[in-house]
Design a protein around this nucleic acid. Structure first.
Lengths: 321, 321
DNA sequence: GCGTTGACGTCATACGTATCACGGCGGGCG
DNA sequence: CGCCCGCCGTGATACGTATGACGTCAACGC
């Protein structure tokens, strides 16, 4: 368990000064160091297994070329896709990403920015807002447009309109709504679009969970003015609606159409496969990261809103007459 | 955009020395600093919005109280659960976690340990082994037992045996195997358990993907000696098996039983709900983090293997006679 | 009255790196 | 020959923090 070698150790072995080691390994030796000296340095570094001390480098440079990606949970696969897009952009610009799951409720002892030295923050769906991040540059994904923080958003209203248009086109005149939560800005957006149609006949709220959605869907479907189509805020909720329908002896989509939102894996695992809105998660991540890096350069990019795509599968059909 | 305040700025405002600020804010001022002085320091720090520079602290201390959690992908929700367990243990010990998705194939420009200053690594399912992490203390989740790196494993063999026992108890004598990959150590473990039963009649390989699994399952089910039960390496593969069965006009579980592995969300979203092995993801994460922290303290905890739990749902039944 | 002790802080230093400013040395040019 | 310039490199320093080694001053005991 010997100590980790420093650049000075490399310098001693290579017979040069520490400054030279730093120059060579940073690739800034062009024309300032003889090629063979550079080789010697690299060789010595390799032999010793030298790895630069990041704490020291960050201290010296005053930046880390690392951004923090804050997500509410790692359980949802959507964040994986968002990350993928963000990581691609970051890598192209030589930035690293550190992911930090942060549950608002958990009130962790230390805030994420107190845990890692980072240049900026990419925050996703922060219920609790962007407080607690001090003056670190930040870009928020899926933020309430009323919030002043710069944001990159998914066009929820557009997605909902695509669904209502699709259902209206099939002839549906009675829509039920299975809503995920009641006090978020997305709920208000969704509710408004549904109200605009003039066809909303009922609504139930539930957690994003198959069992809970099943109960809510039962309440929605077991009424005299049963809706001919159920609009769900999430694919998982739609899975619950399937179960409720089957329990009531209703066939999807013959007796009742069901739509989801997000197009996660379960959407195509279900029978019939689910008509839903595909969330452009990867592009969202990429745009958000691009916006954050812009901000790190001192610019102020405008907010962005990306549209989803309607994926028509087997869960929607004209209503039975 | 003024500069960020340092402990020296706080000292100046509070009218004390930088050392005193450091002492007070570290909570080590007991009996060494007058309470009112301590208050003044804290007040000044608050007014200036002082946050300690982590790079400097890490450099000084030579450690970061942060560990790196390396995962192959963020898309699988399993890692979310593993993380949850690991995070709980880490927080209790005052450690932070940084998550880094690392795809072996992507060959990133910088290895994860080159991005953040960390004390140790918790690596999950590293296909490529643990090379590239230098001599940083490491614990590997789900590692090939043949690998010398300390590991915390899921008892795959035990899970498979629970499944084969369950199916044997129901009377199944012809088992098909839908396998995820062919060259991993887990495959060999699973294959061996199935061979032990003497009831394995066929096997197909496929990616962990509903569509691919459907094709493989079709090949498996569309044979003269059709298996009465299909053992799948993953819940998602089981979803593909459902589709194949339905396509062939077979009812699950009346005509063919299906089992999954892991108990992810889709398992209970399917109709009928899937009999599967629940992976103790949260406990795995907790044990792995505990083992890593032990190693950071200089100990060498033994390898661990945690059992899963058979969850019997509606996808298995006695074979039709 | 003098050493001792305790209370309250401060000084100086080191962590490992990147970079600015400064050479020495040899060759080319006037 | 004297001067400058380009090549190849080094010395010194600063980043912001934590901490061991010191001071200072008053009270106290004998």
């Amino acid at each position: 368990m010997s100590k980790r070698p420093t650049s000075r150790d490399v310098a001693r072995v290579a017979g040069v000064s520490q400054s030279t080691v730093s120059l060579v390994l940073a690739g800034k030796a062009e024309g300032r160091v003889k090629p063979e000296t550079g080789q010697a340095v690299r060789e010595a570094a390799r032999r010793l297994g030298y790895r630069p001390n990041l704490a020291a480098r960050n201290l010296r440079l005053g930046r880390t070329r690392t951004v923090l990606f804050v997500v509410p949970t790692l359980v949802s696969p959507i964040f994986g896709a968002v990350y993928t897009g963000a990581a691609r952009v970051a890598r192209d610009r030589g930035f690293g990403i550190v992911v930090h799951p942060w549950d608002d409720d958990a009130t962790p002892a230390r805030s994420p920015v107190d845990i890692e030295a980072i240049d900026g923050v990419l925050a996703s769906s922060l219920g609790g807002g962007v407080a607690g991040f001090g003056d670190v540059p930040i870009v928020v994904l899926d933020n309430d447009p009323a919030d002043p923080a710069p944001s990159v958003n998914f066009d929820v209203a557009g997605g909902m309109r695509a669904i209502t248009r699709h259902l209206a086109g099939l002839g549906h005149r009675r829509l039920g709504h299975l809503a995920a939560a009641v006090d978020t800005w997305t709920f208000h957006v969704r509710a408004e679009v549904l109200t605009e149609t003039g066809a909303l006949t009922g609504r139930e709220h539930c957690a994003i969970d198959v069992a809970a959605a099943r109960e809510a869907a039962l309440a929605l479907l077991d009424r005299p003015d049963r809706p001919t189509a159920v609009v769900c805020d999430d694919d998982l909720i739609a899975a619950g609606a399937y179960k409720a329908a089957r329990h009531l002896g209703l066939d999807v989509p013959r007796d009742v159409s069901v739509t989801g939102f997000d197009d996660i894996l379960v959407a195509s695992a279900l029978e019939p496969e689910l008509t839903t809105i595909r969330l452009p998660a990867e592009r969202l991540g990429a745009r958000a990261m691009a916006a954050l890096l812009e901000r790190l350069d001192g610019h102020a990019p405008p907010d962005v809103s990306l549209p989803g795509e309607l994926i028509v599968r087997g869960s929607t059909a004209p209503p039975r007459r």
